[in-house]
Amino acid sequence: MSSTVKGVIARSKGAPVEVVEIVVPDPGPGEAVVKIQACGVCHTDLHYREGGINDEFPFLLGHEAAGVVEAVGEGVTEVAPGDFVVLNWRAVCGQCRSCAKGKPQYCFNTHNAKQKMTLTDGTELSPALGIGAFIEKTLVAAGQCTKVDPQAPAAAAGLLGCGVMAGFGAAVNTGGVSRGDSIAVIGCGGVGNAAIAGAALAGASTIIAVDVDARKLEWAKGFGATHVVNSKETDAVEAIRELTGGNGADVVVDAVGRPETYEQAFYARDLAGTVVLVGVPTPDKEITLPLIEVFGRGGALKSSWYGDCLPSRDFPMLVDLAQQGRFPLNDFITETISLDDVEKSFEKMHRGEVLRSVVEL
């Protein structure tokens, strides 16, 4: 029997979000219904509301979530009712050519629930990143549920579902930062600061935070940045080179996703260094680089999908590290809010006042 619960939708491009009643079907084969306990407000949700992802309105927003499995459908064995889980948006298939190569983190056939959640008039909703978690309970593919330590606070654990995992993974998984390396991170919001925290955990010796907002640079120091550069006042490339003996950083992470920040990242890396793009560009963004520079600098230009993570491996590990006090997961939470406050949290995000607002249900 389906359930009718409250959730937050974006009905049309740029319109304020609304709290409405949503019909959640019982889980079908391979699906699970999860009672949401907490969900972070990510910039990707704002991208959806602004039409920056696609135009499949209305959207059910929210995706950085943790909660408890309420029911599962036929054939589900990986989770059971009562399990505390973090939701992920890349449920791997286990059968595609990438999975067959032993690289499920690059699965080319990730999937979501087959059934649709709807408004009470039957209008089908498009759940953000296949999740839709600004809601009292949501329907997902069972593979989108990753069991973690149930003692972990839901508000913090849920952030692994997107931003924190994306940033940590960009530095550690994609960039391969290790002991003694230098890294520069351009853009110090939730994703960028997670990259900084990941680099600190991995043992990087020089961690350079770059942003135009002095408040975000102060946050970056708290997550492990050894140096900060305000690129509104200083040439970021020159500053990064000066802080790395004139060479450039071993790894530069672009957590913004704009042509100008990518160009900074490209020129701020050392010879044979690595550029990692984890900030999501809008479809209209383009970049031009001299091909001789691409060749002559060597190294690697990489994009990072979800921090190249494997949720079943990485989520429990990071929760455990947080529980041990070795990874500052709780520090990403600026405030906790209700479903009614999501629109206000978008405004605060625009003004750079919050690292993460988290909806608690």
Rank of each mutant, 00 (worst) to 15 (best):
V5P: 01
G7M: 11
S12A: 15
V20M: 08
I22H: 02
P27H: 09
G28T: 07
G28S: 12
P29Y: 07
K35E: 15
I36G: 02
V41C: 01
L46C: 09
R49F: 05
E56N: 09
E70G: 01
T77W: 05
A80W: 03
G82I: 06
F84A: 01
V86H: 00
R90H: 14
C93N: 04
R97Y: 14
G102M: 00
Q105Y: 14
T110R: 10
K114E: 13
K116E: 10
M117L: 09
D121L: 04
G122R: 04
G122Q: 01
E124Q: 14
S126R: 06
A133W: 04
A133H: 14
A141M: 07
A142E: 11
Q144G: 11
D149L: 07
A156E: 10
A157K: 02
G158L: 02
G158P: 10
L160S: 00
G163F: 10
G163P: 03
M165C: 11
A166G: 05
G167M: 11
F168P: 01
A170H: 03
A171H: 03
N173L: 06
T174N: 05
T174Q: 07
G175L: 04
S178N: 15
D181T: 12
D181Y: 11
S182D: 04
S182M: 00
I183Y: 09
A184L: 06
G187P: 00
A195V: 03
A197S: 02
A197Y: 07
A202M: 11
S205W: 07
T206A: 05
I207M: 00
D211T: 00
D211H: 00
E218H: 03
A220K: 01
T226A: 01
S231T: 12
K232C: 08
K232T: 14
K232F: 11
D235P: 00
A239E: 13
L243D: 11
D250S: 08
V251L: 05
V251Y: 06
V253W: 02
G257L: 13
E260A: 14
T261V: 02
E263D: 08
F266Y: 14
F266I: 10
R269G: 06
R269K: 12
D270F: 15
G273D: 02
G279N: 02
V280I: 12
V280G: 05
L289T: 09
L289S: 03
I292H: 03
V294C: 10
G298Q: 14
G299E: 08
G299Q: 08
L310N: 12
D320Q: 12
Q324M: 07
F327L: 07
L329V: 00
E335D: 09
S338M: 08
S345K: 05
S345E: 14
K348C: 09
